[in-house]
Design a protein around this nucleic acid. Structure first.
Length: 854
RNA sequence: GCGAAAGUGGCGGAACUGGCAGACGCACCGGACUUAGGAUCCGGUAGCCGAAAGGCUAUGGGGGUUCGAAUCCCCCCUUUCGCACCA
């Protein structure tokens, strides 16, 4: 008997798969396709078990689907641009490219040693010009359609390093390298107009029926649609003269509660609001106004990091006209008003908004009740908190007496009729700022010409290559700006000297469409051939971390629509089914290099083999759940595989030689029929658990049960697998044709069912069973529902809902018979004797419940 | 604060559409085999009472619906995650 030596077997099969190009595919419209994708990887250096869990999950699905005769696209690639490469360059002097490519090489080896069945010939890395040129191409298409535009926006700035910082480089309000307090700077930056698709992205969420509800909720909240109205509060001159009020010169606010506008006793501006500068200019002592506003702006940055801030504000000394009450109300600047949401200005209705209430209480601003609940009227002056629920309007002019919900609509109409405002829909979702003042990213293909303005790089001059930079100091606002050969360029339109854009793109651009590139990864003419994408896309099964629930998955849905509107893809949604896999914890914490609790898959492969590692990770919990790493659990999986190995290895020669079709039912004895039933029932359970349910853990449980039954079945002299086995010479198998037939059926099904989880060992055993063409050619085992069905069933019998006995009966027993047997059961009788049987509930095949009254 | 999900043996977890709670594994205990066993094969293992048959209790806590609830409804507690002044 040969021992189970995973390392030898695994290398053998990995080489075979590679040589046979086993997982390479091409579009074939005559076959059903299945696109199985795991989120591609950032090449950080070494993959730990937490990273690779996702790839194992996807691999089980890919291998299953292949066996079910789908044409399976299962590609992999690298999200290879990004900040860590640049940080490594600054710290260690390695070039980002060298660092990245070395990491890719190492991690690719790790994945290959795990036996993940990727179509490696389709591998892509986003940092290569063959890939990123299509980012540039798409950017230009978006620019042409007004989907890419430029405006001023704020970035983090370290005055000591003289550099822009990404959000993740800001640590506790300071620079990650020197600790200097981070300030802000306004720069011209590029944006993608994702808000054009806000409504569609929101509405289509309802169609994503195979996504986790949690992710859909997060996306809905992120898009944050709210219906309301914009209302203009005319600006009054410094004296407060109401006769000059003019809706054209006004502070516009956004509100969802225009019904409360008669209670608006002040207006609040964000510190960044443009009106602040105007007031300062018009009013004496204006400088202090700007100073105080700026103090809020600085404070706001710190507050984001520390959590809570106290609501604060100050009076600008100016007033605006409440357009409904026609009375002047003061304008304040408040630190909690967000500049980027709505209009950056809100009306303060302290009686009916909790924030306004707190603000008004603090600064003794008037509180006016305009909505009264039906039941308990609110007492003026006795208000302890804002009342923001439904009610009827009071003190609201012609709208008095109207239900608030109706007034929301009526008053918006009135505002529009009077030219004071209109109904609008406001989104929390903002346009996507993609400019990064970084080196290691896709150069934005734009040229600035003094004569022609902003000119895109012509398509035939793409890609705009990233120049090689020798030194990374981490200083300066944009590394590319320091490379004259890069910056200086002739204007494509007029030929005169011009300057290139020196910012690079957010790496989320790269990951927003890579799943299309996989369909046609070597295309040098276009991002992809629409025919290839039409065949493969959408992705049927997409799995990855829940941390991408919002950004990556919304951006990808956005890009899908952009490509659709460019006529390049035909579907509306890129990912049909999404699975968010749980993290792997060790010692109660997420694995991370800094915590020093990472488990390297290579170490585990060295000890137990890739198959055991895969099986353990799949078995220990459902894929969506987090798992706690235990060495003991891995060892258990190894023991299970070794147990399968011993069983199959003992029988393989005999079974390979046996020509043993399963005889008709009557020819089998009870044990043989029971094994057959178990075999077919297991196939049924595993098939149903695996896809689309992805209950990988329970599928493995079912296979383990089959193995346990097989061991018991084989504990008979003519099979010779009783007693101790490990170091004993094999006893010859002398069983007759019936036994051999059911054994062969069971063992072959076992090996095939195990193959998505433990592919190397399964191939090895499949070969030992006399098959030359591998498990995919064999196909996924089929089950016969009639065989899987038990002949005899055990029916529990309850009395008043308490389990009292069990009846073993034929599966097709009649209800009346079941009732009769239940009432005759001696144990049941002890609980029913002397009592009146009220009724007997018979759930056929499942349970009998006898209800008695005492 | 708001929203979502989840609480089941010593542990990870299972349980179809409301129908035997604890599949499968880990750990532990016992048996066999053995010079040996940390290998292997077989068996046991929610708690309590009982010699056994059997009984009682049990799915975070409390109520409810039902012949019957881990599962459905209400209240509370805890944990995790997401959003956190979005007007």
């Amino acid at each position: 008997m040969a021992d189970y030596t995973p390392q030898v077997i695994e290398q053998k099969w990995q080489a075979r798969w590679r040589d046979a190009r086993a997982f390479e595919v091409s579009a074939d419209p005559s076959r059903p396709k299945f696109y199985c994708l795991e989120m591609f990887a950032y090449p950080s250096g070494h993959a730990h078990v937490g990273h690779v869990r996702n790839y194992m999950i996807g691999d089980v699905v890919a291998r299953l689907k292949r066996m079910q005769d789908f044409n399976v696209l299962h590609p992999f690639g690298w999200d290879a641009f990004g900040l860590p490469a640049e940080n490594a360059a600054i710290k260690h002097g390695t070039h980002p490219e060298a660092w990245t490519l070395a990491n890719i090489a190492h991690m690719k080896g790790q994945l290959q040693r795990l036996g993940i069945s990727y179509a490696w010939e389709r591998e892509i890395a986003t940092c290569l010009p063959e890939y990123y040129r299509w980012n540039q191409w798409l950017f230009i298409r978006m620019f042409e359609r007004g989907l890419a535009y430029r405006r001023r926006s704020t970035v983090n700035w370290c005055s000591s390093c003289q550099t822009v910082l990404a959000n993740e480089q800001v640590v506790d309000g300071g620079c990650w390298r020197c600790g200097t307090v981070v300030t802000t700077r306004d720069l011209e930056q590029w944006f993608f107009r994702i808000t054009s698709y806000a409504d569609e992205l929101l509405d289509a969420i309802d169609d994503l029926t195979d996504w986790p509800e949690k992710v859909l909720t997060m996306q809905r909240n992120w898009i944050g649609r709210s219906e309301g109205a914009r209302v203009r509060f005319p600006v009054l001159p410094p004296g407060g003269d109401t006769s000059t009020a003019d809706a054209a010169d006004a502070i516009e606010v956004f509100t969802t509660r225009i019904d409360t506008i008669y209670g608006a006793t002040f207006v609040l501006l964000a510190p960044e609001h443009p009106m602040v500068a105007r007031f300062a200019a018009e009013t004496g002592g204006g400088a202090s106004l700007v100073d105080r506003a700026n103090r809020f702006r600085a404070q706001d940055r710190m507050a984001r990091l520390t959590g809570e801030i106290e609501k604060e504000g100050f009076d600008t000394g100016r007033t605006v006209l409440n357009p409904f009450t026609r009375t002047p109300v003061p304008v304040w600047i408040a630190n909690f008003v967000l500049p980027e949401y709505g209009t950056g200005a809100v009306m303060g209705v302290p009686a009916h908004d909790q924030r306004d209430f707190e603000f008004a209480t603090k600064y003794r601003l008037p509180i006016k009740i305009v909505v009264q609940p039906e039941s308990r009227p609110l007492g003026e002056g006795a208000l302890e908190a804002a009342y923001s629920d439904e009610g009827r309007l009071v003190d609201s002019g012609e709208f008095t007496g109207m239900p608030a919900s109706e007034a929301v609509i009526r008053m918006a109409e009135a505002a529009r009729a009077r030219g004071l405002g209109e109904r609008t829909v406001q989104f929390r979702l903002k346009d996507w700022g993609i400019s990064r003042q970084r080196y290691w990213g896709t150069p934005i293909p734009m040229i600035y010409c003094d004569g022609c303005g902003i000119v895109p790089v012509p398509d035939d001059q793409l890609p705009v290559l990233l120049p090689t930079i020798a030194e990374f100091s981490g200083r300066g606002d944009s590394p590319l700006a320091q490379v004259p050969e890069f910056v200086d360029v002739a204007c494509p339109r007029c030929g005169r000297p011009a300057r290139r854009e020196t910012d690079t793109m957010d790496t989320f651009v790269d990951s927003s469409w890579y799943f299309y590139r996989f369909c046609d990864p070597r295309n040098a003419e276009r991002p992809f051939d629409p025919a290839d994408v039409a065949y493969w896309a959408p992705v049927d099964f997409y799995s990855g971390g829940v941390e991408h629930a919002i950004l990556h998955l919304i951006y990808s849905r956005f890009f899908c629509r952009v490509f659709r509107d460019l006529g390049m893809v035909r579907h509306d949604e890129p990912f049909a089914r999404l699975l968010t896999q749980g993290m792997v914890l060790k010692d109660g914490a997420v694995m991370s290099k800094s915590k020093g609790n990472v488990v390297d898959p290579d170490d585990m492969i060295g000890k137990y083999g890739a198959d055991a590692l895969r099986l353990y990770v799949m078995f220990v919990a459902p894929p969506e759940k987090e798992i706690e790493w235990t060495d003991a659990g891995l060892e258990g999986s190894f023991r299970f595989l070794a147990r399968v190995w011993r069983l199959v290895d003992h029988l393989a020669g005999t079974l390979a030689a046996a020509r043993a079709p399963v005889p008709g039912g009557a020819a089998l004895d009870d044990d043989q029929r029971a094994l057959r039933r178990k075999t077919h029932d297991t196939i049924r359970r595993v098939t149903q658990d695996l896809y689309p349910k992805a209950h990988l853990n329970t599928a493995i449980s079912a296979v383990m049960e089959l193995v346990n039954d097989l061991y018991l079945f084989c504990d008979r002299p003519d099979v010779g697998l009783g007693g101790r086995r490990a170091d004993e010479d094999a006893t010859p198998v002398t069983a007759g044709p019936g036994t051999l037939a059911v054994l062969k059926e069971a063992v072959e099904a076992l090996v095939l069912m195990l193959s998505p989880f433990a592919p190397h060992m399964s191939e090895e055993l499949w070969e030992a069973l006399g098959h030359r063409d591998g498990v995919v050619a064999a196909g996924w085992p089929a089950f016969d529902e009639a065989v899987a069905r038990p002949e005899a069933i055990v029916v529990p019998v309850q009395v008043n809902g308490k389990l009292r006995s069990r009846l073993t009966v034929r599966a097709d027993v009649a209800e009346a018979e079941l009732e009769r047997l239940a009432l005759a059961d001696p144990v049941v009788r002890t609980h029913t004797d002397g009592k009146r049987v009220v009724k007997v509930v018979v759930a056929r095949g499942r349970l009998v419940n006898v209800v008695v009254a005492s």
